[in-house]
Amino acid sequence: LNVVLSNSTLSGEDGRELCLALNGIVYDVSSGSQHYGKGGGYRLFAGRDASRCLAKGSLDEADIPTLVTDNLVDLTEDEVGTLKGWVQMFSKYPRVGVLEGFISSAAEVEPTKVFAAARSGKTEDLRQALKGDPDWLKDEDKLYDDTGATPLHIAASEGYLECVKVLLESGVDKDILNLASKETPLIGAARGDHAEVLKYLLSLGADPEAKDAMGYTSLIHASMHVSLKVMEELIKGGADATYGDAEGWTCLHWAAAKDTPKSIDKLCQLNALDVDAQDKAGNTSLHWAGKYGNANAYKALVKNKASETILNSEGEAPQLAAEKAHQTDCVIS
C-alpha cells in the first residue's frame, strides 16, 4: 500500500473526499461517485471510516467513529460476517492506504488446501485437495472463507475454467451464494470479464438474473466493466437488459454513468433494451451521461438514437440537466 493514513487525513481536506476506510483499509471510491459523491446514498461515508456502519447496516452518524480507537471488538458474529462481505465487494476499488492504529476483530482465517488450490488455479492440486478431504462440502467452515466466498466463487472470478469444472463435479451448486455479498459464481465471472467461465456456467443453467447484495445483475457488472463478450453471452443466455436496480438504473444507465461507450454500442447493437429507458427519477441514460459530464458516453448514446427531448421528473431534458450540473463537455451550443 502506498501510504498510512490516520482518521484526520480522511476528512476530505487533502483531496481524498472520495476515499473511505473499511476494516482498516483505505479505498479510493471515485469510480463509485454515484454512491459516494454528492447526492449519493452513501455520501455519509466519504472521507470517513465506514466499517461500523456497514457492519451494522446503519446510516446513523453516531456509528461513525471520530477517533482511531474503534477496533470493532464489540461487533456480533453476524455483524463481522456482514463486514467481511463488504470487504470482498470493495476489492473492486483501489487500495490507497491503511488506517493507522486499526486492529480489526475480523481476523483472516488460514485457507484450506481446497481454497489455496482454487486461488492458484492449479487443477491437479485442486483434485488432490478434494480427494484428501472428501467431506469438505458438508462443513460450512470449510466451504466458506472469512468473506463468505466458496472456492467456486474464487475460481470463477479468477477465470480458472478447469477448476470451476472440477468444483462443480464435486457437488458445489452452480448458483451458490456468497454468504455476505450474495454474489453467484456467474456474477463473479462477469465482473472479472471471464467469458468462457460464464458461458460454461450458463450452459449448465446458471441464473443470469441473480442479483448481488447491491441489486446488481451479471449484465450490470459486465456493462460497467466493458466486458463485451460477456455481455453478448449473457444476452444470448437470457439476461434481461431491461431490469433496473433499486434506483431503476438499467445496465445502460450504468454504462453511461461509467462513461463506457463501447458497452453502450454493444447493448444497442444487441437491441437488448430501450435506449430511452427512464429510472425512478425519470432520468434516461443520456441524462446521466450529461450530469456526469461523460462526453464519450453522451456521444455514443446520441449516435444510437437516444432522445434529447425526454424530460425527467424535474422537467429537465438531458441538455438542461448537463447545464445545471455545469458539465460543459456535454452541452451543445
Rank of each mutant, 00 (worst) to 15 (best):
D139R: 15
Y160W: 09
S157L: 00
L126R: 02
V164R: 06
P151S: 03
D125S: 12
K142R: 13
E124T: 11
L152S: 11
D175S: 12
K113Q: 13
F102W: 13
S120G: 10
K122C: 12
N178H: 10
A149T: 10
L137Q: 03
A129F: 02
A129S: 05
P111V: 04
D175P: 12
L130F: 00
A107V: 14
E158R: 15
I154V: 15
F115E: 03
S157V: 00
G121I: 07
V109L: 14
Y144F: 15
W136T: 02
V109K: 15
A155H: 06
P111E: 04
D125K: 09
A117G: 08
L152T: 06
K113C: 06
W136Y: 10
D175T: 08
V114Q: 03
D173W: 14
D139S: 13
G171A: 04
D145F: 02
F102K: 06
D141N: 15
W136M: 01
S170K: 10
A155Q: 07
V172L: 15
D141K: 14
E110H: 14
E108K: 14
G121P: 05
A156F: 01
N178Y: 00
T150G: 04
E108D: 14
P151V: 00
E124N: 08
K174T: 00
D133W: 09
L143V: 13
D125T: 00
L152R: 11
A156R: 03
F115N: 05
S120C: 10
F115W: 06
R127E: 12
K142Q: 12
K131I: 00
K138G: 01
L126Q: 06
P134W: 09
L126N: 01
G132A: 11
E108P: 11
K122S: 12
L177K: 15
V166I: 03
D175E: 12
K113E: 14
L143M: 14
S105C: 15
L177W: 11
V109D: 12
L126K: 04
L167W: 02
D135G: 06
L143F: 11
E158T: 08
T112M: 11
D135V: 10
S157N: 08
C163K: 04
L177S: 11
V172M: 15
S105W: 08
L137N: 04
K174A: 02
G148M: 08
A116P: 07
L143G: 03
A117P: 09
E108C: 13
V166G: 05
S170H: 03
V172C: 07
